[in-house]
Simulated assay, not measured.
Amino acid sequence: MDLYLADVPQGLTRRARSFVQVHGLRVDSLKIDQYRDGWLALGIPAREVDRVAEYSARWGGVVLPPAPHYDGGPRILCPDTPEGSPAEGWWFEAGMQRTAVPYSFMIGPGGEFGVHGDRWVPLHATVEGWVESVALAYHAAMYAKKVVKVVADEVEAIRLEGHEPVQEVAGLADTWWRGPDSLVAVYRGEAECLSAPVCRTAFVYTGLDRWGLHG
């Protein structure tokens, strides 16, 4: 069913809330209660089961348009069995991939949204940060007069003087930067996860007015 305003999770900017409301769907998701006893029997701590339940209640079943990187991101935000150990911490799936990429989208021990393949790389400090980044990508593409894609070593040549971090995306490996009339999205997570510097990607959106910059 369509996501009505009351169904959109709190804690998002107006731009992201509007994006989810207009373009998002909510479908059935994993019912954690039916798995709780089995997971506890496997030795998964109760607090980790509670984390999955909280994620499912807040984000479970949310379907967003494809992200501009990571082959679109998760198809549906839907958790699965926690993985990890008391020593390393615990992760659980954020949602199944849209395509056959060599990593999974996971929620980390501290609630980070990231990718787990050859190694764990947190992309955003929060799930909200991931949603904000997807919403901002669509917003910037709509209002920019010019969009340039940059890859590999050319990403390091982007001049960010006069830019400031876009705080709402809670960027870690992936970051957004706001300049006088531009937005820059830098995606390093896939490159770090796969130890493949050639996968570094950035999008530079220019010719933005005040609404395009802030929405």
Rank of each mutant, 00 (worst) to 15 (best):
Q97V: 01
Q97A: 15
E48T: 10
W39E: 09
A137H: 08
L123W: 02
E88Q: 14
H124S: 05
H124T: 05
R98I: 03
A125N: 01
L77F: 15
E54D: 15
G84C: 10
A137S: 15
Q97F: 00
P66N: 09
G110E: 14
A137L: 00
G114S: 06
S56E: 13
K31H: 12
A67C: 02
S56C: 07
P86T: 04
E93N: 14
P109M: 05
S104D: 12
V27K: 08
W130Q: 03
A53I: 01
R119C: 12
G110N: 15
A125S: 10
Q21H: 13
A87I: 12
G95F: 04
W39R: 09
P79D: 13
I32M: 08
L42E: 15
V127F: 11
R98V: 05
W39I: 11
Q21C: 09
G117E: 09
E128P: 01
G43W: 13
H23I: 00
P109H: 06
R98W: 06
C78F: 06
P68E: 08
L25G: 00
P86L: 03
G95N: 11
Q21S: 05
P45T: 13
I107H: 03
V27F: 00
H124G: 03
D33L: 06
E112V: 08
G108C: 07
S29G: 13
G43V: 07
G117N: 12
